[in-house]
Computed example of a mutant assay.
Amino acid sequence: MLPSNDPASGPGPAAEPSATPGRGDLDPRRKRALFRAWHRGMREMDLVMGRFADREMATLSEPDLVALEQLMDEPDQEVYAWLTGRETPPDRIDASLLARLREYRS
Rank of each mutant, 00 (worst) to 15 (best):
M42R: 07
A58V: 03
A58T: 06
P90R: 04
A99C: 03
E56F: 00
Y80D: 05
L47T: 09
E74I: 01
L83F: 02
D91H: 06
D94W: 04
A67D: 09
A19M: 13
E62I: 09
Q77G: 07
K31W: 10
L83Y: 07
D46V: 07
G41H: 02
L65E: 10
T88N: 14
W38M: 11
H39L: 02
H39T: 06
L65Q: 11
L71N: 00
L65V: 01
L101D: 02
M45N: 10
D91C: 06
P75T: 03
R23G: 04
D64F: 00
W38A: 05
H39D: 05
S18R: 13
A33W: 13
A53F: 05
R32E: 11
G85A: 05
L101C: 10
E56P: 01
R40S: 05
D54L: 04
L34K: 13
R43N: 11
D73H: 08
D46N: 15
A95Q: 08
D73E: 15
P21T: 13
A81Q: 08
R36D: 14
M45V: 15
I93A: 06
R23M: 08
L97V: 02
T20S: 10
L26Q: 15
P90E: 01
H39A: 07
R43P: 07
E62S: 12
A33F: 15
E69T: 00
P89R: 03
R102C: 08
V48M: 05
L71M: 07
L97M: 01
S18F: 07
G24C: 07
G41N: 04
M72A: 11
R92T: 13
F35S: 11
F52M: 02
D91A: 13
G24V: 06
R40F: 04
D27I: 06
A58C: 03
T88Y: 03
W82R: 03
E87P: 03
D27K: 05
D91K: 12
K31F: 08
R92E: 11
R30W: 11
D76Y: 06
E62V: 12
K31I: 02
V48W: 03
G50T: 10
R55H: 09
A37V: 05
G24M: 09
F52L: 08
E44Y: 00
T88Q: 14
T20P: 04
P28D: 13
R23A: 15
T84P: 07
L47S: 14
G85Q: 00
R36Y: 15
D27H: 12
L97P: 04
